[in-house]
Design a protein around this nucleic acid. Structure first.
Lengths: 134, 134
DNA sequence: CTAATACTTCAAGTCGACTTGAAGTCAAGA
DNA sequence: TCTTGACTTCAAGTCGACTTGAAGTATTAG
């Protein structure tokens, strides 16, 4: 496939595809004259990259997962990323519930609605105590 | 509280706090000479902002939730953000499971492991059919 | 064969989210 | 009172992730 087909199939602009290739995230399998030739397989990789971006991974992080350094996959890295995602999922769930509450809530400002703050686990974490002059 | 206290309490550098103030995400309640004075309440707002950033919202989006335009909270906006989060949560969950599988999997490349791709819902979405010359 | 169109490279530009640096002010503790 | 360290402003710099533009080339439809 040439780059235009890949662009259509993936929904990404050709500029992005060249950029990803330059970054080493994808590879072309050769050239037809000047033109890059890609394997259809690249579509999967691109879907994977988009998904990764969408869940908040950087291109470098995605790159590290795509082609591990050395012979073996860096399993601890994958597992720690999975754990990070777990944390984010928890936060997102809280945020989602908070937003749904806020949409139904009468408080003037979300940052002042105790239920909202409690949903987000923000309320009363640390109290500020002004230093009283002796 | 002065900006240094807020920085300590929130874990954010003072430069970020000034930046957020300039963007209208937080407010100081006055000045002591030149120095900004913040209400302890700002800590909640900052926690909210950090949470929002962490789940992938832009500062502008967070700002829109923090102080709705007009008199009323933009409930449809909140609900649509909540829906977006739901989608991301689904993707993240898939990605997390995918990563955990990949860490245990023997395939040479994740992008070639059918189970991984299936977990991420990537596999076989569209097949590329090279145009055969007539 | 020819012309259009899709590709090529490379440098520079953009955008969001901050950070850094220079130069100056000021509140507070010794 | 004096000094010092925490603050101030404002402009410019940085970083990741792309996008845009200019200038050129080559595949392919007609």
């Amino acid at each position: 496939m040439d780059i235009g087909k890949v662009a259509k199939a993936s929904g990404l602009p050709t500029s992005t595809l060249r950029f990803y290739e330059e970054k080493g995230l994808i590879e072309s399998i050769g050239r037809n004259g000047l033109r890059r030739v890609f394997s259809p397989q690249v579509i999967n990789t691109l879907a994977l990259i988009s998904l990764g971006r969408n869940v908040g991974l950087s291109l470098d992080e995605i790159g590290a997962m795509l082609h591990p350094k050395g012979v073996h996959i860096d399993r601890p890295l994958l597992l720690s990323k999975a754990d990070e995602l777990d944390k984010k999922i928890t936060e997102m769930t809280a945020m989602r519930d908070g937003l749904r509450h806020a949409a139904a809530c009468q408080a003037p400002s979300h940052a002042e609605c105790p239920k909202f703050l409690r949903l987000l686990n923000i309320a009363g974490k640390k109290r500020y105590r002004p230093k009283r002059p002796l």
